[in-house]
Design a protein around this nucleic acid. Sequence first.
DNA 1: GATTAGCACTCGCTATCTTTGAGTGCTAAC
DNA 2: GTTAGCACTCAAAGATAGCGAGTGCTAATC
Lengths: 351, 351
Amino acid sequence: MSLNERKLKILQAIIGDFVRTAEPVGSRTLSKKYDLGVSPATIRNEMSDLEDMGFLTHPHTSAGRVPSEKAYRLYVDEIMSGGGKYHLSKDEKDSIASKLYDNVSELDKTIERAAEILSEITNLTSFAMTPKQDEDTLRFINVLPVDESTVVLMIVSETGKVSNTALKLNVPYTDESLKILSKTMTFNYQGKTLSQALTMDIIESFESDIEAMSRLAKNIMPNFMRTLEEMLNVRLYMDGLSNIFSIPEYNDLGKAKLFMEMLNKKEDFTKKIITREDGLIVTIGTENADENMRECSLVTATYHVDGKLVGKLGVIGPTRMKYDQITSVIEYLTDNISNAYKLTGGEKEDD
Amino acid sequence: MSLNERKLKILQAIIGDFVRTAEPVGSRTLSKKYDLGVSPATIRNEMSDLEDMGFLTHPHTSAGRVPSEKAYRLYVDEIMSGGGKYHLSKDEKDSIASKLYDNVSELDKTIERAAEILSEITNLTSFAMTPKQDEDTLRFINVLPVDESTVVLMIVSETGKVSNTALKLNVPYTDESLKILSKTMTFNYQGKTLSQALTMDIIESFESDIEAMSRLAKNIMPNFMRTLEEMLNVRLYMDGLSNIFSIPEYNDLGKAKLFMEMLNKKEDFTKKIITREDGLIVTIGTENADENMRECSLVTATYHVDGKLVGKLGVIGPTRMKYDQITSVIEYLTDNISNAYKLTGGEKEDD
DNA sequence: GATTAGCACTCGCTATCTTTGAGTGCTAAC
DNA sequence: GTTAGCACTCAAAGATAGCGAGTGCTAATC
């Protein structure tokens, strides 16, 4: 059984319809709405084949078909790139550009605006991350005693950046344990770039270790992460959060809650975004390692500033999304930003 | 018919019960749960009186009673202050303080943390506004032509602060119209402090004016507002947004959506918070002028930095909230912040 | 006169049952 | 290989009944 032209055409029609309506699509509907030149019965046979091949599923016996993740993957990889790409019209492009440059000001505002535009067009939740300056690597980390409940966390980078943060601990410590902690952390993080360090999961290595040390580490890590983030100077913007209320997939309160909670854990989310590869990346459903995202798709793309610093822009939503339109819009936006903030300096004007 | 002791006691019990359960409370439940020393029938009679007096309502004939806004007002004004105040236990205080100072760092982080703690304890959505530097008044506003679609918005304050922002307009303008606009804006805003200016609704005055001018103003105002906000340097933090999913009042998707949308319009919300009076302020339901807030209550308090700069901390939620606990927690938090950041300089330590 | 017991009545919820209709899979004819 | 026809499935929507928490009134009681 091969994926002949007709099967592909039917699959595409199903994806298109389902993406718009969020309702399982049946053979009759399909033959009426789309000019496929065959009867519902034939479509049914083909659908049955497509289901056997893993491209469609069946919520229950008497319901229409729903595209599987595999179908979306196929759509993104094959159908979309092979001529099926969504082309933004001149009007759409102009509208986006005019909104993006309406108030020509600093990069941060432009990025924020880009997220805004993106969520507006896609009706999904969008996010944007400001560029990270990331050549710098860590030289050493030192945790120093101040008084019985306060320590100073000192981070020094290869280029000489220093950050000191005083922390109140709610577990006791000894000078000895701080020394070990400092050494361990230095050992673990030395030579890593800030963003690499940010995405490492180091607490685990303590977990099995001595109880006391693990607790100490747990106390310090959140602050360590936060400080790294500050040194990296990445900022995460989000827009269109309330859009989830218009998405059928989330009109179950429990699901909406989970979705919101996932996005609201900013550190976690930043981490996830920061580790994604550069360029236009689409991850569908279970392709997302994170278990809270197994029912979501993510589309991200990177933009460049001065041809080098890399920031990210993307959307998150249910696996049922308009991949073609979304990727086109994101690409258009990131291209625009990259162009505007080229080495020449872009159009930065302020104060 | 007067509000005698027994009526007050019953009312208090109803409020207490309803705040916890979100269910209308009936006479039998009341007499069983609370030791009021009278039979359900008597309670019914009193409840009927209380309803006549406007302190209770009736969702429908065969349901229990629900406190009205008037009841909450009475509770906040009379019952709570008259000995019924919620006293934080030593443990609660310690727990709050330790979380607040866990990582002793800059003010902004402390404020953010305060909002976090607040939403955690109250299970509501909390917000915090960083202090505003607000002695400075505006001297003049100038809108200058650059090219046919770009202008520069220049704002100058009495102390000499200057802000220039380049804007792309999507309506045509003449040099003349810019001059008029500049003059009008200067006339309207001169002598106002930044935060006063921020909360004025100036577009209205153009509305009736010449169409073209009004459109021009509409193009410029959002940027004007944003720039003012930057000059004021206020930042709005929010926490516990996903808490709304656990609040019975919002387990209707439509209502949750409206709530979210209201909070997500950051400029509007900032404006509302910035204009609130200083000190501990409770506004209940329709007492909030804003029509999107007519089913919400807001509790805010102010904290001081160096005894002068004023920031705000607060929660927003359904009118059914634990006013006693919430006010106590907010006061405790703002007191702590004000103390920590006294003239002596607090405990700021960084870099 | 205030309090309470008793009772009829109200009405939103929940559970159960039925109906409806979109959709499938199979078979037999084209 | 395609299609018409038909029996079958099953979620969703509507209808109905019963439950139970709660009220308001009346008459008896303290």
